[in-house]
Structures are given as C-alpha cells and as structure tokens.
C-alpha cells in the first residue's frame, strides 16, 4: 500500500468522524425566548435555508409567540408546521407571520417545513 493510499484511508476515517460529530453529536446552541411586557414568550425567527434560531427554549404554561419572516422564494419553506401543537402557518415571502400557542407539557418538540427539509426544535422546560 502506497503512502498516498494510506493517507486517503486515514482522511476517510477522519472525515467520517467529523461528519458524525458535526451533524449528530456536537452540542447545539439554543436561544431562550424573551418574555415580553404582555407576558408572552416572544421569539423572532428568520427563514432562509433554515430557521434562525432553530433551537428555542421556552417555559411551559406560558404563551409562546413565534414570529416567522421568510426571506426566500423557494417553495419548500412556504409553510411551517408544529405537528405536536397542531399549529401551522403559510409564510408569504417577506411577511411577518405570528404563531401563538401555550405549551402545557415539558419536552422537545420539532418544527419543520412541510417536507421536512428545514427543521428546528422547541424545548419546553
């Protein structure tokens, strides 16, 4: 086995570990919702190739107000779904769309676009 072949194999192993670590095991940064004067937990989310922020921490039993603004025309992200809360909204490009609901139980709830290409997570504490 030549040196270059060994190098390629080692690179393959390193890349595999990196991919697995980066996408599955690395801890994700999360955003805590700010509580507004009205008592709702408010977060503004930008939709462009993904949700920013995509991991949102909220408290249970308090209304959550998520304002989505979509900055792309790709049809994939035109809807956002919260299947666990039976909430969904169409996001016209450039318009602010607000979803409001109150999570009653703690846990991790996913949200996503209709076909699941963009994903985010709502962590209820």
């Amino acid at each position: 086995m030549s040196q270059i072949q060994i190098f390629v194999i080692l690179s393959g192993i390193v890349l595999t570990v990196l991919i697995a670590w980066y996408f599955w095991f690395a801890p994700k940064a999360s955003t805590r919702a700010a509580v507004s004067a009205s008592g709702a937990q408010e977060v503004a989310i930008t939709v462009k190739g993904g949700y920013t922020p995509d991991v949102i921490v909220v408290q249970k039993g308090r209304p959550v107000r998520l304002t989505f603004t979509r900055h792309e025309s790709s049809a994939c992200s035109e809807k956002v779904l919260f299947p666990d809360f039976n909430q969904n909204a169409v996001l016209p490009e450039g318009e602010q769309v607000t979803l409001e609901f109150t999570p009653a139980k703690e846990g991790e709830y996913g949200f996503q676009c209709q076909m699941g290409m963009l994903r985010g997570k709502l962590i209820v504490e």
């Binding site: 996408f23 949700y51 920013t52 995509d54 963009l118």
Partner: peptide, 9 residues
C-alpha cells in the same frame, strides 16, 4: 444555511 444549523439536506 443548513450547515450553519448543523444540519444537512
């Protein structure tokens, strides 16, 4: 954008 969110599609 997906990469920044540690996801891939």
């Amino acid at each position: 954008a997906a990469f920044k969110h540690r996801s891939a599609n």
